[in-house]
Amino acid sequence: MTIYVGNLSFQATEDDIRDVFAEYGEVTRISLPIDRETGKKRGFAFVDMAEEAREDAAIAELDGAEWLGRELRVNKARPRSDDGSAGGSGGIRSRNRTTRFSHNPL
């Protein structure tokens, strides 16, 4: 399973994201897409973890958490469709709750 992390601060780095998710278990891969035309981060990432139970815990805890001034959207990534898109965002939700998460690398 891959975790989708949306509404990321454009200042967030792969190391920052790894630090956050490492609190929940072993991170095996991070993808932080860059716009081809501008060379800037696109505001979302994908994270893979070694254990699905740890991924589920990270999703439950981090979805709706505020980090670097933005409310994260964290859920299971959807597989790409035949046209290359990942589909709509109808399943994204926000818990609007405060968490113990307060990592701020800046």
Rank of each mutant, 00 (worst) to 15 (best):
M1G: 14
Y4R: 06
Y4G: 03
V5D: 08
G6C: 06
E14Q: 15
D15M: 01
D16E: 06
R18M: 07
D19A: 14
V20C: 11
Y24E: 05
G25M: 05
E26A: 06
V27G: 04
T28W: 13
R29I: 00
I30N: 03
S31L: 09
I34P: 03
I34A: 02
I34V: 15
D35Y: 15
D35C: 14
D35K: 14
R36Y: 14
T38W: 09
T38G: 08
K40Q: 14
R42Y: 12
F44I: 04
F44P: 07
F44G: 07
F44H: 15
A45T: 08
V47K: 13
D48L: 08
M49W: 08
M49N: 07
M49G: 08
E52D: 13
A53V: 07
D56T: 12
A57P: 01
A57D: 15
A58L: 10
I59K: 04
E61P: 00
E61K: 09
L62T: 10
L62K: 09
D63W: 01
G64V: 00
A65W: 03
W67C: 02
E71M: 01
R73N: 10
K76G: 01
A77Y: 08
A77G: 06
A77L: 05
P79K: 11
R80L: 12
R80A: 14
S81N: 10
D83W: 14
G84Y: 14
S85W: 07
G88M: 01
G91A: 06
G91M: 04
S94A: 02
S94V: 00
R95M: 01
R95T: 06
N96M: 02
T98L: 06
R100H: 11
R100W: 09
F101H: 12
S102K: 08
S102Y: 02
N104F: 10
N104D: 14
P105W: 07
P105D: 03
L106K: 09
L106P: 10
L106H: 08
